[in-house]
Amino acid sequence: MKILLTGANGQLGRCFQDRLPEGWQIEALGSAELDISNASQVEAVIAAWKPDAIVNAGAYTGVDKAESEPEVAARVNTQGPKNLALAARAIGAKLIHVSTDYVFDGQGTQPYLETDPTAPLGVYGKTKLDGEHAVQSVLPDAAIIRTAWVFSEYGNNFVKTMVKLSEKRDALGIVSDQRGCPTYAGDLATAIIKLLEQDAAGGIYHYGGSREVSWFEFADRIFDVAVSQGRIEKKPALSAVTTEQYPTPAKRPAYSVLDGKKIKALGISLSDWDKALTEIINKF
């Protein structure tokens, strides 16, 4: 299978390349090699490579920065996926587009289904939702995977930040009133590969961790693993803080748990984020 991967230098992009099945060919492009918001460039690259499938792991992910750069976020998160969908349609390629839990307002109390109403709270979520709609309008058979709380051994993420902070500080305040399902990017990459191998039907899928936690609970577990592996000497004293006590430019969904039954029905396991922590923390 020939794959064109965007966002090649991000967490998901790098994990996807690490797990590429034997015999598959890949053209892995970062934003410097392919600006997905540039329609003519996208069309030319995809027409030349003629992939069987396009995996769009590229995105503008600066949730807070997007509030002051809505046009930039929209170019990457909305126009970019539309350009990829148009180019995929032109050559008959499959498209898998990665989206986010931020399309929801977080007012729910049960894991979000793919069919639940969307209501993004900020620019990032709105541009990602608009990107979903753009893809669906051009290529109804595209697969859209919403995910959340992504971490890995690559790039910047919550796990890395916690380990680094614990080396400098004896006490930390962690938000305790936001809940979600951490997702290891390597598990997400495997799920995408399995969707491609199965030639799964298009539509929206939810993919996240198999167990929900708050940021506070997640941090607590990160430090337990880091101490047990000798990555840090001692666990910092943790105090729970509320979202109100830790204001940010963009609002975050308070409840961000995604229901993964639809993708599990295809025989694809949800992310075992606890296992992943034990495997990657010493790689930092």
Rank of each mutant, 00 (worst) to 15 (best):
R75G: 03
P140S: 09
T118Y: 03
G7N: 08
Y154L: 07
Y255K: 06
T161F: 15
S269N: 13
W273A: 12
G106D: 04
V225S: 10
K275S: 11
I268K: 08
T127E: 03
T118N: 02
L121R: 13
A66W: 02
A57C: 08
V213E: 14
R14P: 01
S166K: 00
L20R: 04
N9V: 06
S166P: 00
I280Q: 07
L95P: 08
K94V: 12
T147C: 07
H133C: 07
P140I: 06
P117R: 15
N38V: 02
G80F: 05
D177W: 11
R211F: 04
K275I: 05
Y184A: 10
K82D: 00
R146E: 14
T248M: 15
E33G: 06
L84A: 03
T248S: 15
T61S: 11
W24T: 03
I263W: 08
S137P: 05
A189P: 00
T183F: 03
S176T: 07
S210H: 08
L4P: 06
A74H: 12
Y246V: 14
S166Y: 00
N157Y: 05
S271Y: 02
S31L: 07
G125C: 10
A28V: 00
K164D: 14
L139I: 08
I96F: 08
D259C: 14
Y124T: 09
D64S: 08
K50A: 09
L34A: 11
F16T: 01
S176L: 01
E233M: 05
V98L: 13
K275W: 09
L277D: 13
S269D: 14
Y154K: 14
I46H: 04
N56R: 05
S228L: 07
V159M: 15
S239M: 13
I3Y: 09
E69K: 10
V123A: 02
G106A: 09
A219M: 06
I96K: 06
S40M: 11
I193E: 05
